[in-house]
Each structure stands twice: as C-alpha cells, then as structure tokens.
Design a protein around this nucleic acid. Structure first.
Lengths: 195, 195
DNA sequence: CCGCCATGTTTACACTGTAAAGTTTACACT
DNA sequence: AGTGTAAACTTTACAGTGTAAACATGGCGG
C-alpha cells in the first residue's frame, strides 16, 4: 500500500469499520476483512489501534456523541414543557436512536465487557453524560441519579430485546415504544416535586 | 476414547458445557476445549449436536426451565395476594434468577441471534411460557400480553445492564432491584380492574 | 458369521486476533 | 548532497476458532 501520511489510513480504518458495523454488524467486523477492504495488511491497523477492542471503543465513543446530540436536541425542543413532557421527549429520542442505529446501540450498550477491554475512563465519562440527562429531568432535579438509571434501564430493556429479536413480531414496535415511554413518564410523574 | 454408549457422552458434553458456562462464561465455551475436557475430539460433539448453537440452545432450554420453576414457585407462595403482590413476587424472583444465574441469563436473553441460529420453534414455546406469566398477573387478566412484555422488558433492562457491568458500581444492587420491581408493580397498579 | 450402524477419530479448511521482526518511505539536519 | 532516524507498512508466524468429509472401530441383530 502507498504511504499516505498516517492519519488518512486511520480515518479510512474508522470509516470502513463504521460501514461494516452498520451493514453487517459487529460480528462481521474483523481486522482482516477491514484491512483487505481498505487495502492494507491486518497488522497495519495495530499501528493506529491497540487492538480490536480499542477500535470498537472509538466507535462506541462516536455513538455516544451521536446519541448525546439527539438527546440534547430533544430536550431543547421540549424545553418549555414540564418535567413529564421533557422526559417523554428524552425517552422518545433515546428509543428512536436505539432502533435507528441498532448496530451502534449494540456495541454501545449490549456488548459484554468480558469480551471487551475495560472501557477507558475518559470515554466512560462522555458516555455517562447521556445517562445523567435522565436524572436531570426528574421533578426533584438530579439529586436521585439512581432513579434516572432505572428509567434508562427500563427503556434499554425494550430496545435491547427488540434489537436482539427476542420479542415476538406480533407485538407492534410502536405500541412497545409507547408503553416504554409511558412507563418512563409515569415514573417521573410519581416523583415528589421539590425544586 | 472408549465407547460408552452414546448418551453418556452427550450427558458429559452438556455437563461440561454447563460447568464452563457457569465458570468461565459463554465466550470460553469452545467446542475444542469442551472436547478436551471430556476426553474426546471436537468432531465427536457434532454427533450429538448439530453445531455450537444447537448446543447452546439446549442450555437455553435448561435455563428457561429453571426460570420457570422459580417463577411458578414465587407465584405459588404469593397466590393469596392481590395482583400487585403477585407481580412483586414474580418480578423479584425473575430479578434474582437473573443475577444468580448470570451466565445462563446471558445466553437466554442477551445473545444476539445473528451470532446464533434461529431458536427452534418448540423450544421457543417453552421460553414464552415464562413471559406469559407476567401478563397473567395483570388485574385485567392476560388479555393484554403486550403489557406483560413491557413489564418484563423493563426488568430485563436493569438485569442485563448489571450483568454487562454497564451500571456504575456506586449504585447499589438492592436499590436498583427495588426500583425495578416497584416500577413493574406500579405498571400493574395503574391497570384497570376488569376481571 | 456377517453386515450394519452407532460411535468415534483423523485430517483438513477457512477463518479469527495479534505479536515480532523486517522493510520501505519521507523528512530533518549536517 | 548524504546520512540518521522515525513513521508507515508488510511478512511471517502463532495459537486459537467452528465445522465438514473421510475413515476407523466397536457391538449387536439377522
């Protein structure tokens, strides 16, 4: 392969990895096929990424930033509403992001760490921002982060089962979406108002 | 390896597979190491199981039956209670099963089908029994299976994130358990009584 | 006794991630 | 211009994966 100044190769790797991830999913993303697609040898990739996991980590990070954009946008669009309405918008945006970016969602939230190096602390923080948005919509403010986690977890449950195709097709996605969002909303509505 | 009458080998395969699954997790479960552990060649396993996935399927089936036992027991112990109390017992039992049998839970509900052959229809039915138990606890009876699915999904969300170690350790498991269960209970309590 | 079938092994293929060592290119500096 | 060095990339190799095809062997029924 022609020398092309390093960072171009790195960009090509990421671009192709992203493409394969979206088209064929995580399992099809192999270092060798990746290398073949961009016209270099497998080991070249190791010049830019410690290993496959750290390549995945940067994809996760991309996904987290995409998600953050979507969530922030949803919050801005509903900023005039009460906490219930903001949560409805947030949950809806989260749900839609998950189903519209299934392959991203999978590497972001469904991959087991045993198959994966520990997620680096710096990137972990950027991921946590997304989750904190849920607690921040509670009427009492972000003082109960665990409740935010619970609301997020419940949403994640439905999304992950849909992605994993563990829910019978006879149940409509829209109905499941509504139920999941309303459950999140109900949890907010049940909180005491304190701020 | 000595001929030992077939079903013994099959039993040994399953026993070792179960052991590895519980000890080292799904990723460590390889046909070759499995064969080495029970003292046969990898291909011998293919006499008893079509492929790795179908071996996993029978483990999933085992897990589903274990889970069913736990859920039925919880329901029996709470049979005198109202639908809210029965759901509390059911959700608690489901949650505990998940965390006490993480490796089973993972293959049962968290593995992506792309990595896996389609779950056989017959076994799928036995899995569905477990989910139907949730809808059956609704005050209006099992007429709204999708609500049962939603309650189950939300529980699954918390469990799967805990198993995947995607929830910060600073959040106590007990508190998350309580919140998840109460969210399930609240969804039941919010239903109209019709039967 | 003989043939068949269940039970198993041997061998092989096409993959996977990744480490070590060697090679080529580009550029800075004397 | 010539040389040193570092970046970029390849070659080769290892150890592992699932699994298919062909071959061997034991025991049992006719």
């Amino acid at each position: 392969m022609t020398r092309n100044g390093g960072s171009e190769t790195r960009a090509a790797i990421l671009e192709e990895a992203r493409r394969v991830l979206l088209d064929q999913g995580y399992t099809s993303l192999s270092m060798r096929s990746l290398a073949a697609a961009i016209g270099c040898t497998p080991t070249t990739i190791y010049l830019y990424f410690k290993n496959k996991d750290s390549l995945i980590h940067t994809l996760i990070d991309e996904g987290m930033n995409m998600l953050h954009g979507r969530l922030i946008q949803a919050l801005e669009e509903s900023s005039e509403g009460c906490s219930v309405e903001r949560m409805r918008a947030l949950a809806g945006a989260y749900f839609d992001f998950g189903l519209e970016n299934q392959e991203y969602y999978e590497v972001m939230f469904m991959l087991h760490p045993q198959h994966m190096d520990r997620y680096p602390a710096a990137k972990y923080r950027s991921a946590r921002r997304n989750l904190e948005l849920f607690a921040e919509q509670l009427p009492e403010g972000p003082s109960q982060p665990v409740v935010g986690i619970q609301i997020w977890s419940a949403l994640h449950g439905t999304i992950s089962l849909l992605i994993a195709q563990r829910i019978d097709n006879k149940f409509s996605r829209d109905e499941l979406r509504d139920l999941a969002i309303e459950q999140a909303v109900a949890t907010v509505a049940a909180r005491p108002i304190e701020n």
